[in-house]
Design a protein around this nucleic acid. Structure first.
Ligand SMILES: [Mn+2]
Ligand SMILES: [Mn+2]
Ligand SMILES: [Mn+2]
Ligand SMILES: [Mn+2]
Lengths: 222, 222
DNA sequence: GTCTGGACTTTGAGTGCCCAAAATGACGGT
DNA sequence: ACCGTCATTTTGGGCACTCAAAGTCCAGAC
């Protein structure tokens, strides 16, 4: 009930994202600790707190799951985070590989009023600069069905829709190669032996991606 | 040395503003406590902290003064606060009477990078929506010499330059009467007995202000 | 010179969050 | 059944900030 501190907001958000990654499995304490950058004991005691306050269910030695109330807070934080990222890129012209940390702080400081003003200013967008969907104000998040570039058949035309890795070096690489969400490309080859996918963009020279990388680039049906 | 927490940032900013109000006198603990909304004992112990960490000088039973280093932090916070206020009003269209609290939170969350992007976006402005001067990135603050409306002679033409009261009700009144910074007006009467100043704006009906109010409205020379 | 009210300081305690390190539990291999 | 491993939990302690309430000081009144 009592409004969450910014630490709690971070926990709820990261638990939600971990749950999403794992297909709704309870999230282990180790995973929580890693996501939040704390020691496992800290995670355990914070999770007990979240449970006591009604945001999560805690099963010792199994993991945490958010309650409906917890999910609502988490989705609101994700909304804030992603709207802020988009705002920083589109309005203030910041580099999309550097905005994650900024949003990580700002998400706790913007009021609902400011957030809504930004949302309106941006024209009620539905995805952020990385292609991540932005939940609506009442906590609904559209899920597009996307495919990893690594799974597209050779010859397919595809449009980059989402980059599932916030690492700044990787994002910079994606940017340099012109692979940001929205870009159209053709899959030109697949070399399972070499663990690679070849692609071609409009003009520029063809490009080869390792499977590691091609898995992190999601495209609309191909 | 170690970077200030947001609590410390608030203390330094409020001490700076109090010092400014009092012509550089040391600021009493009671004043610090009132400005920060804490109990006096809390102020005393926090001030000792600031002193130990090199941001202030503390004379027991006298008051605090910022060191040069403390002033630099304070001016940076004031810069952040005022730039944010302007951004919220000019870019996001928020009501100027409601932005103070928003900026109070955001000032601790925006990075130097985001701040500079906003500054550029706004065209390197020199004053905020209330007419308060915005310190430069290196901590210089232009001081205009302004006069209280309550001290203008009858017949003078004057231009509103600054409103020295962040109270939301007062700001709303100022807004409703069309007295925001930039407005030009004429002083039509002074009634010391009635403790009032009469003014006329362009079209609208003449208006009478109590001295209380007229003191909080600063104008360019008159 | 003594008193006294009000400002200030000190003390003791609490909250929220964190870590280090010791204790515990569970699970697969033997 | 017994071990060892490794994740997890517990314990004890620390830091930053806060309040309540008791103690101290001082300026001005007398
Ligand atoms: Mn965050
Ligand atoms: Mn994103
Ligand atoms: Mn603040
Ligand atoms: Mn202002």
């Amino acid at each position: 009930m009592a409004s969450p501190t910014s630490t709690v907001e971070n926990y709820l958000k990261e638990i939600y994202l971990a749950q999403e990654r794992q297909g709704d499995q309870p999230v282990a304490m180790g995973e929580v600790a890693r996501s939040l950058g704390v020691v496992p004991g800290t995670a355990t005691s914070m999770i007990k707190n979240l449970a006591r306050r009604g945001w999560a269910e805690y099963s010792p030695r199994i993991g945490v799951r958010l309650t409906d109330e917890g999910e609502l807070v988490a989705l609101n934080m994700i909304r804030r985070h992603r709207l802020l990222e988009l705002f920083l890129v589109k309005t203030l012209g910041l580099d999309w590989s550097e905005i994650h940390e900024e949003a990580e702080q700002l998400e706790h400081a913007v009021s609902e009023r400011v957030l809504d003003a930004m949302d309106a200013f941006l024209g009620r967008p539905t995805s952020d600069p990385h292609g991540d969907p932005i939940p609506s104000a009442n906590g609904k998040m559209r899920q597009r069905k996307l495919v990893a570039l690594s799974r597209c058949r050779v010859g397919a035309k595809a449009k980059v829709a989402r980059i599932t890795d916030q690492d700044s070096d990787f994002l910079q690489f994606v940017e340099n190669q012109g692979l940001k969400p929205g870009t159209e490309l053709t899959v030109t080859s697949r070399l399972p032996g070499a663990d690679a996918t070849g692609i071609a963009l409009g003009e520029s020279a063809p490009l080869t991606l390792g499977t590691r990388a091609a898995e992190k680039i999601l495209v609309e049906e191909c």
